[in-house]
């Protein structure tokens, strides 16, 4: 028989997961943003490459993608928090 986790164990797991998700999501978005800034600083010409047969440049695609990805990440986090973390939290109350 598997031993049921005590409340304290569950609490520690809950805090750990919360922090893990919050910090890894934060680091991901910061990494993408500062990579973009460094690209602008050191390799601006890369961002000026045209996408096949159009006037849209790599820079514009990356820039707009970062905005859209930020929104996407907030949705992903909210989904995880609403459906998973909150349920774990209710068990602790």
């Amino acid at each position: 028989m598997k031993k049921l986790p005590s409340k304290e164990k569950l609490y520690n797991k809950f805090i750990f997961l919360n922090k893990l998700i919050a910090f890894s999501f934060s680091l991901l978005i910061l990494f993408i943003y500062f990579a973009f800034i460094l690209l602008i600083g050191f390799r601006p010409r890369v961002l000026g490459i045209y996408l096949y047969d159009s006037y849209i440049t790599v820079g514009i695609v990356l820039g707009l993608s970062i905005i859209i990805f930020s929104i996407f990440l907030t949705f992903a986090y909210t989904l995880i928090a609403n459906n998973y973390l909150d349920k774990l939290k209710d068990k602790l109350k």
Binding site: A22, S26, I29, Y33, I40, G59, I60, G63
Partner: peptide, 17 residues
């Protein structure tokens, strides 16, 4: 666009942390 992105990227961080 560089400014726009800077003004936006703080928002996910506010949500997460």
């Amino acid at each position: 666009l560089i400014y726009s992105i800077g003004f936006l990227v703080g928002w996910p961080i506010i949500l997460f942390l």
